[in-house]
Amino acid sequence: MRLMEKFIGFQKSDKKKCFILGGKKSLPLLLGVIPFGFAYGVFAREAGLNILETTLMSVLVFAGTSQFIAVKMISNNTELITIIISTFLINLRHLLMSISLVPYFKRLNRYTLFFFSFGLTDESYALTTTELKRSLINEYFMLGANLIIYLTWITSSFAGAVIGSRIINFKTLGLDFALPATFIGLLALQMETKTSFIVLGTSLVFSLLIYLVIPGKWYIIIASLLAATGGVLWEKWIQK
């Protein structure tokens, strides 16, 4: 609780500093976001979307995996409602992310809350939760990260749509590993207690099992719920 008070004290003062820090810290993630956005742009054009539609989807939806899957489904002439339901299911994982941020960000005003939530992606979540463990940051950190990732996403998908074909082989450059590597780095920085490793292990085992058995993105949701519960049970159990 003492940390929380210190946090609120910091929260009042350093909006600009946090915003810039969030933008800066998001830079390594961009090496993963750019090829992803570019590839989405290329695929969307191949699926029959024009440049405006391709870019507008990035501007309004801002969700990489579901945009990818949506354009694939468009090229298969899937019904609109099916694509929208799939998008919802893919992005349900953000529900868990949003819930878990509740304890850290209190009383955001309407506009802050809008941009904070709109920009919540796997990338900005990974970044923000890691930074929450290391330093005292406020919601402006996440807003700064969101903005940089958002602009990069729009720009790279526009570039992919305009250029229309893969000009660089990202795999030979090793860039296919840029996003996983950054996530591994962020995750490693969150590993502090014995319980962290219990949670990681539980999530690892269950996510792989569920991924191989149940189609869709359910593995993220189910494995996370189980692993977090495992963490609580473990701490209760060792405290006794």
């Binding site: 979540y125 590993m191 539980t202 999530s203 269950f206 993220i220 494995a223």
Partner: peptide, 21 residues
């Protein structure tokens, strides 16, 4: 306490299939 474990759990679940499958 439960929510505090979500970040590690979610990041692990996001990464696991990318790495292992």
């Amino acid at each position: 306490q439960w929510l505090r474990f979500f970040p590690i759990a979610i990041l692990t679940a996001l990464l696991a299939p990318i790495i292992f499958v």
